[in-house]
Design a protein around this nucleic acid. Structure first.
Lengths: 294, 294
DNA sequence: CACCAAGTATCACCGATCGCGATCGTCGCG
DNA sequence: CGCGACGATCGCGATCGGTGATACTTGGTG
């Protein structure tokens, strides 16, 4: 029994598919098949019940899986311990980020991290499905950490550390009937056409929740993945939008109005897993993120 | 990093000697040297500071060692978990025993264990250096369990479970001046020639301690590893002996006398390690041993 | 029922790895 | 200075692990 075999077995158990496990492990499918078979022969037990359509754990496999994870985590901790002692961290840190990261000053944060730990490769990725997609990837161990905006209660296996927040303001064309108002309420803008991020994005969740809580609705006629283009869409009459002030670099032709009587705070958080230990590099970034907090 | 490499590294760290580690691992010395070197290259750190005379852990090695042990223990727990689920335990259980095991009914115990767990190979060995040697072997992980007799406080890393005990009686030739006595004291036999087990044996420790506590001494003129031959030696005038009654199968030509005023209880115990988890097979034998207690 | 797509298992091949045995270099001791 | 013990290196043969091709299986669909 070797760690490599345990790693392949765990990947298959989690993916419930040899081919997906192979992709995750960056080897060919037959290598995974052979390695699991060798492990089964060595242990004298079938670990997986599988055919071309389905892969399920046997009782022996179910008994092995948590302990295999412990062994792999222990080996990782061993590597990290050596790295910490021996002049610096190494490895790759997979970080998920929201598309709009200016709320967080992420470049400054990651730049400082890189200066402190040049041996760590940072692999940042943006989730096409917004923060919910990042949370899914974190839960599926495809990310080590994620910067997300997730209002409401996170899943039990994810811990959120609040980092920053911004209020969403109403952005309207300057010739809009509401443009001369200093503040509006949700009732004033219920039923109107909106520009917003896709479902799954944190800011979209904030706005959807606010309307739902007020028993009101609206039409989102266009979804934009990058809120930095939001003011532009508003300017061209495609609708109105709820955006953070920092996302409106050029406010000519639009007015920014406060929305009274509702909580439109958009919060950015660092999401970390609680169901498994995080590596030394991840811990270092978590510590650095705390340093960056006001 | 693989478990095999961690196992080799841990062995070298504990033995502080590549050659002894190789013997323990049943491979040649160069294989251990190469494996540790490969591990060091992979981790990018020197783990051991060594030359032809000395092997010491580096800081990185010291950081790795406890975590390597955890990983190896986790892998062993994983194997055991599969074995327990999959129709029975398997593997080898290395048991040390005293030369005289009739105090314990060991054949009956091990027979029952074998009936219950036919997949487990029992490898029993007798320590040429008595119970102290068994304790050493247990501490050095060359044994999984040991049946010992060890008066006094055991080492901190060993736990003793008392199983049985017997009182040692004085055995003298039937023409000996003391033969007509019904009971004697240590003072009566101080300074006389004795037959006894070698130093390190539990029964020898009991008798040595008794004389030392009384401020008396004696001459052990012949050491015998098997107390079953003790009475025979006594019969032939080689000395007197302190033996448990069950070891005197044929008492013609000798007398057995009680020794008053001193504790000559010889206790047999099961020694288990406390500094590492024991395997499933060892746990099963520990449980069965408890069942065999009155 | 035939066909298809997706997936797993097997096989041949090849490069890498591992353990063995021999041997060299080092080190502390007498 | 010679010696014994030990670690590191090297050549070699056997084994292992990954690749790519392919055979086989399975469940869904028309």
């Amino acid at each position: 029994m070797e760690l490599r075999q345990l790693e392949y077995f765990v990947a298959v158990a989690e993916e419930q598919n040899f081919t997906r496990a192979a992709a995750r492990l960056h080897v060919v499918q037959s290598a995974v098949s052979a390695a699991v078979k060798t492990l089964e022969r060595e242990l004298g037990a079938s670990l997986l019940d599988r055919n071309s359509k389905r892969v399920r754990l046997t009782d022996a496999g179910a008994a092995l899986l948590p302990r295999a994870r412990i062994a792999l985590d222990a080996a990782r901790a061993a590597r990290d311990a050596v790295a910490e002692v021996h002049g610096g961290l190494r490895g790759t840190l997979r970080i998920g980020t929201m598309t709009s990261t200016r709320l967080l000053h992420l470049p400054a944060l990651l730049g400082e991290f890189h200066r402190r730990h040049p041996g760590v490769l940072l692999h940042t990725s943006v989730a096409p499905h917004g923060s919910q997609g990042l949370i899914d990837a974190l839960a599926e161990r495809r990310l080590d950490l994620a910067f997300v905006s997730l209002p409401g209660t996170p899943p039990a296996e994810i811990h959120l550390t609040e980092l920053a927040s911004s209020v969403l303001d109403l952005v309207v064309p300057d010739d809009h009937p509401l443009a001369t108002s200093e503040a509006v309420t949700l009732a004033d803008i219920a039923g109107l056409d909106f520009i917003d991020s896709p479902v799954g994005y944190g800011n979209r969740a904030v706005t959807d929740r606010a309307f739902a809580a007020a028993g009101l609705s609206r039409r989102v006629t266009i979804e934009i993945p990058d809120i930095a283009t939001g003011a532009e869409h508003v300017r061209h009459g495609l609708g109105i939008a709820l955006l953070p002030r920092f996302a409106v670099a050029d406010d000519h032709g639009v007015r920014l109005l406060s929305v009274a009587g509702v909580d439109l705070t958009w919060t950015a958080s660092l999401a970390t897993p609680v169901d498994r230990p995080v590596g030394a590099a991840a811990r270092a970034l978590i510590s650095l993120t705390a340093e960056f907090l006001p």
